[in-house]
Design a protein around this nucleic acid. Sequence first.
DNA 1: ACGACTTCGTGCACTCGTTCACAAGCGCGT
DNA 2: ACGCGCTTGTGAACGAGTGCACGAAGTCGT
Lengths: 226, 226
Amino acid sequence: MTSARRRHVPDATVARLPLYLRSLHALAEEGTTTVSSEELARLVGGGAGSPAKVRKDLSHLGTYGTRGVGYDVAQLVDTISAELGLARRWPVVLVGVGNLGHALAGYGGFASRGFRIAALFDADPARVGEVVGGLAVRPMGELPAVVAEQGGAIGVIATPAEAAQDVCDALVAAGVRSVLNFAPTALEVPDGVDVRKVDLAVELQILSFHEHRRARAEQPRQEVPA
Amino acid sequence: MTSARRRHVPDATVARLPLYLRSLHALAEEGTTTVSSEELARLVGGGAGSPAKVRKDLSHLGTYGTRGVGYDVAQLVDTISAELGLARRWPVVLVGVGNLGHALAGYGGFASRGFRIAALFDADPARVGEVVGGLAVRPMGELPAVVAEQGGAIGVIATPAEAAQDVCDALVAAGVRSVLNFAPTALEVPDGVDVRKVDLAVELQILSFHEHRRARAEQPRQEVPA
DNA sequence: ACGACTTCGTGCACTCGTTCACAAGCGCGT
DNA sequence: ACGCGCTTGTGAACGAGTGCACGAAGTCGT
């Protein structure tokens, strides 16, 4: 299949592409021009890294490495960036300028990896006008205009759980079709809208499980049975 | 297998338990005493929710629902909390009181879901002493003493990428065996230490992929070929 | 007391992803 | 020019997780 380009890229692979990209950027900066699947696997580390997985992932992109040599770092950066749609520097609208919202607005990692915070919103009139990370907080009413002006955007919800669904509805109504939700609640969205969620407490609870399990295995004194 | 209790709980199930727990807490607060697998699946929403999946997940805990009725909300909360090791209110040590660290320290969601921020640390002497979220920032040197005093802890890394590995080493040396890493870098740890990572930019990039794919599918004008 | 209805628990088939193993391809040294 | 060693790309085996379908078990109404 010479022109097989990318047919269907599995979700599991998509989830790893950003990790590869991160490591590749680091390599590029230190001047490395070529990397093997084994080296790359080591760099992304942990569970995400086995050489075979790397090769299969990259093969889904139609990317060709050079046998006996490895992959060209610069070309791989371009290919993955293109696949992820990072040619365009996506505008991000952030709703909810509380504790977490402040942190996100000030987080440099977005800018350096293909995103641009286009505007901040908050439902609380007292917060509107406040300047955070160089941007003035706007009232929710301006959301549709901003999204239209940007020609689409990715929405980030950093509000309390109670407000999240309303905010999500407003984002969708404004034309946003990709939402990243930090509020600890499930969101209902129409077909065609994509939601990802990040729940900080959930991650801790998963860690807690493993910690607990380890403790149970090491010191099986006795649990009080029901 | 009457006494089959919990043999091995699959990772995929563990990752969903906190979501169930969240919905169950909400149900308990509004006074609901009983819930069916179908209802619970609907509540957790999205990809995580199919009734069969819920039942299978819960069966791994040895939990018995009542046929014809559903699950007892209160009992299920207890069972899942126990499985996740939330009987103990885990102490969390947070390293890196920058932008994100501030947000995490002030985030109420931890306290309400089984965790307690025990101490804040920062390598920058200028930050030491500052009070954030009711806690004074301590110098890294005090880390081992604090962890020992708490009898173990979960470590959270909210530093820049460059500092993350050193901080991680310090945590491990202090006896921490579960680490949540917000820095955009892979961490190397010895066996027996568990690391989970949350990378905010990665989530956005995954969204970007889907957005890009959608755009490509809808308007296949022509991409500029290499 | 009994039947109809609801909902759980679970074996089975299937899908998706990972790992393995190896042939094909490329560059380099001689 | 040629062979040797390295690394990719990929088919095939394997394993984990999901969805389905149905038997088991309990409740409620009559």
